[in-house]
Amino acid sequence: MAVGAYTRPTRLPDALAALRDGPCTVLAGGTDHFPARVTSTPDEAILDITALPELRGIRRLSDGGLTIGACATWSAVIAADLPSACDGLKAAAREVGGVQIQNRGTVGGNLCNASPAADGVPPLLSLDAEVELTSLDGVRRLPLDGFVLGNRRTTRRPDELLTAIRIPPAALDGTGRFLKLGARRYLVISIVMVAGTLVRAADDTIASARLAVGACSAAALRLRELEAALVGRPLAEAAATVTAQHLAGLAPIDDVRADGEYRCEAAAVLVRRCLADLAAA
């Protein structure tokens, strides 16, 4: 695409052809795009993907899994009939900006923008989400933590489009939670956030759990050691299982919102609270 061009295709192959044609900026809900263009407008070609029907919708798949179209909005997530494992994802959706932002911002855009404080990443990590990347060469799937690499960095190739997010059937068991900490109630960039899902066994022990922490590292982090430690533990001991070692992978920065020491401390508190809440559910 030529610099200054703006195209809004209605067919996926046309969008993929445009991406193959040359570098372009992919525009979906615009909630990150426009804020980055307040003081100046870069010379760029824009591919607007909001008219592609393939990218909309949230559906259960025949294998029991779930697919979320890359252009599904946060409001669509809130409105969708989803299993309780997705309660954390829904809670996160309600915390993305105000309702105006939830009505426009997309799940796929949140992932591709790859902010360390992206509200969507921890709950999707806790759901073992995969991303579906489509190009003229075909489709490839990657686990989410292999897609978001760091601050504004993903493994999307310039000719690829993030078309969907998939949640495998096994991740839809149990229940989910999301806790966000910010310095005000609405419209706030997270200081720390924690998402978790937990499946209880018949004997009131933990069958499985997945936890992720956001805004405490360049990309949100799964706490796999903690997850392993939780398996088989009594529900009542879920929160007490957490040790400093489980959070050792966090590498928060000092910024205007909080210092790193605080972020580590708050992450531990929120992980324990998330687990206590999940265990009580």
Partner: peptide, 8 residues
């Protein structure tokens, strides 16, 4: 409701 500054 949407922010008109974020819609093309």
């Amino acid at each position: 409701q949407v922010c008109a500054c974020l819609v093309s």
